[in-house]
Design a protein around this nucleic acid. Structure first.
Length: 110
DNA sequence: CACCTGACATAAT
DNA sequence: AATTATGCCAGGT
């Protein structure tokens, strides 16, 4: 099978941090890197796109720096992204009229 | 080893 | 404000 592989050390580190993001809040790809002291926002996104530990690792609580959603379940648009938004709304995260997460809900990782 | 791709971020247009 | 170009770095081929 092509999709099956062991998570790398870097990916494990990312999951360790994202695991701790509290209900009702979100953090950003960039803030995760900062907390990690390694990699870039982009490489964190790539790691999360392969997250094999959902929902134990709540990767839906990680969004872009400007509050836009980013991706979910390997997709950057479409119904998966809608799922991500619904999940966040369920948890109490509020959205602006333009579809971005309200800045007040964005917290530092860690 | 030499590319290539990707759930990003920021600066410049 | 919206779009484009560049830089970034980890992982796969």
């Amino acid at each position: 099978m092509l999709g099956n592989r062991k998570p790398t050390d870097f990916e494990i580190l990312v999951y360790e941090i994202v695991r701790k993001v509290p209900l009702g809040t979100v953090t950003t790809y960039g803030r995760v890197t900062k907390r990690l002291g390694r990699g870039t926002a982009r490489s964190v996104g790539t790691a999360l796109s392969k997250n094999p530990f959902a929902p134990e690792v709540p990767c839906h609580r990680v969004v872009r720096a400007d509050g836009s959603l980013g991706g979910f379940d390997g997709h950057t648009s479409g119904p998966r992204l809608q799922d991500k938004r619904r999940m966040l709304e369920e948890e109490g995260v509020t959205f602006l009229p333009d579809g971005r997460v309200a800045p007040a809900c964005i917290r530092d990782a860690g």
